[in-house]
Design a protein around this nucleic acid. Structure first.
Lengths: 227, 227
DNA sequence: ACCTGAACACCGTTCAAGT
DNA sequence: ACCTGAACACCGTTCAAGT
């Protein structure tokens, strides 16, 4: 009764809301999955929803908030796993989860670039990593620092590999990297020229875990007193 | 005489070239240094040069090539340093050089995202890192992998810190990270809540070298047989 | 409250001309 | 060869109205 309806019986003053935050996020996810982040724009989204660009701004603050909502939705789908007891393995497994959640969304690069932490629903990953680091014998400050090292490595790996994939998908010609390698002088760059053919075949996604393993080993060696 | 001048004595057929690749790169660098990469556009560049957007395309292939030219110019200014003899220190110093060259240009983020290697004039950095890793006892393949781990860490650190700085410069209000931290539940996230105040004061730029040290230690432990 | 149309202030790039 | 003007196909966001 406090909400003063106007006698029409519909229960609200204005017109029936056609749009909702949920509908906008759904439409955005569809574009992301089918066409990539390059095709996601407020105007395109409005078109898909048979609406106007401005109508969207009644439901999301701006485009950044929309991307954050999408990341949040994704992170909510990952359930928090039980971590192993061994300190080293525990930190490694927690760090791997960070990568695994983000690796499912190539559009993450744009969000990575927009803030240095994650959506609220992914915060358990950060908590797990910091906790696992403390469990290794690190001080809280060193654990925070260990998280940052892991985060930078993961963000860099995602940035570079997703961007490469995107480039490859749209440009058929040789990448700049390939052109660069072809022009190298064997006298000046003996190591790189010797590795030139093998360079591309090393798939970085397979080696991500090995990198994490070595980083975790180094972090524990450098920051946890005993073992 | 082969160049068939047309009697006017000026030595070329068309009008005097007003623009040059060098002049374009110079103007771009000025915008980059004084206003940031967000203000660099082909149209803005044309305006600064009292020209038209299209005139630029006679001197650079596109905007990506322009950014690459800028990175190349920057890398050329760094002279290749003598590296220490100790294998661990050698790899660390070579890896530090990668960071130091890139850290001088905040606009690098856009270039990072556009390819997974560097401008030709920065290739000595990659050569040095791979060579230092082999010098630690790694196989060429493992050295290539070690370079990648170092590169991902460095790229991620630059991406996240430069982006944060940019955000802070333009938006006076609390960042998303600060808002996220403020909303955390102490029961669910004990580690993060305990670290909440100390989180921002840890300057990541100071800790980059320590991170490299630990990563190098881990890489050597995991990939070089003896010591 | 929710939505629209028009506008502001931009982008990178291409095409067809001009000298 | 070098440059221009106009156009194509877009952006995110704001303002002032409409129902």
């Amino acid at each position: 009764m406090a909400n003063g309806t106007s006698g029409s019986g519909s229960g609200h003053r204005g017109r029936l809301p056609r749009l909702s935050q949920e509908a906008i996020v759904d439409a955005a996810r569809t574009i992301l999955e089918q066409e990539g982040v390059g095709h996601l724009s407020m105007r395109r989204l409005a078109k898909d929803l048979d609406s106007t660009p401005m109508a969207l701004y009644h439901h999301v603050r701006n485009k950044d908030e929309l991307l954050l909502l999408l990341l949040d939705e994704r992170a909510r789908k990952f359930t928090r796993l039980a971590l192993p007891d061994d300190p080293h393995d525990r930190l490694l497994t927690a760090a791997q989860a960070l990568h695994d959640v983000l690796a499912t969304c190539p559009w993450i690069v744009e969000v990575l670039a927009s803030d240095d932490l994650m959506a609220v629903s992914a915060m358990w990953i950060v908590e797990d990593i910091v906790d696992a680091a403390i469990n290794c014998g690190m001080s809280p400050e060193d654990a925070m620092y260990a998280y940052r090292v892991i985060w930078y490595y993961t963000a860099g790996q995602l940035l570079i590999n997703f961007t490469r994939d995107r480039r490859r998908a749209q440009a058929g010609d040789a990448t700049y990297r390939e052109r660069t390698f072809a022009s190298l002088d064997a006298e000046e760059f003996p190591r790189l020229v010797a590795l030139a053919e093998r360079w591309p075949e090393l798939d970085t996604r397979d080696t991500h875990r090995k990198g994490l393993e070595d980083i975790v080993t180094g972090l524990i060696a450098g920051n946890a007193p005993a073992g």
